[in-house]
Amino acid sequence: MASDRCSCQGGTTLVFACSGGADVGEISDRAARLLDERDVGSMYCLAGVGGRVSGIVKSTEAADRVIMIDGCPLDCGRRTLEEASIRGFTHLRVTDLGFTKGDSPPTSDTIECVAQAACAVVGSVCDSPGASGPAQATAPVCVGSQCCGG
C-alpha cells in the first residue's frame, strides 16, 4: 500500500521470497523485487508472517493472490506460509527452474528468468521498465519444470 489512495477495491497480489542466504535465495529475493517494480504484485514480508505480525498475516489471508518464491527444496517460505495457515498460494522453486544451489550466481539473466517464470505461472505479463510491450527475457522463459538456468 504505497500510495494514499483507498486500497479497498481488491485485486491484490502479494509476492513473497524466501530471501535465503544461498545464491538461489538471493535470486528469489531479487526476482520478487523485480515483480514488485513491474507491478505484477507487491513484495511483502515473509518474516512478518513467521513472526505472526497480525497486520501482515491478515493481509496475506485477504490477498486475492499470493506468490511464494522459494530458492531450494527446503521450501522454507512455503512452510512458513503453511504454518500460518495460509493456503491456496502459487509456489515456485528456483531450483526447479534449472538452477543449482551453490552454483547459480544471481545475475540479471537468472533473476529475469525467475521473474518471467512467476509471471507465466500466474498468467501475468511481465513488462520491462520502459518497454512498450511484454519483456523479452534474455534467457529462455521458463514455465513449470522447464529449465532456464541450465
Binding site: C6, S7, L14, S54, G55, V57, S59, A62
Partner: peptide
Amino acid sequence: DINQIMSFGIMMTPGLAVNGEVKSVGK
C-alpha cells in the same frame, strides 16, 4: 493517516484492530 495505517503492516483497507492487534483486513 496513511503512515499510521501502514505502521500496522496491512496492505489493504479497511482494517480492524482491537487493542492494537489487527483482526481483519480488506473486508
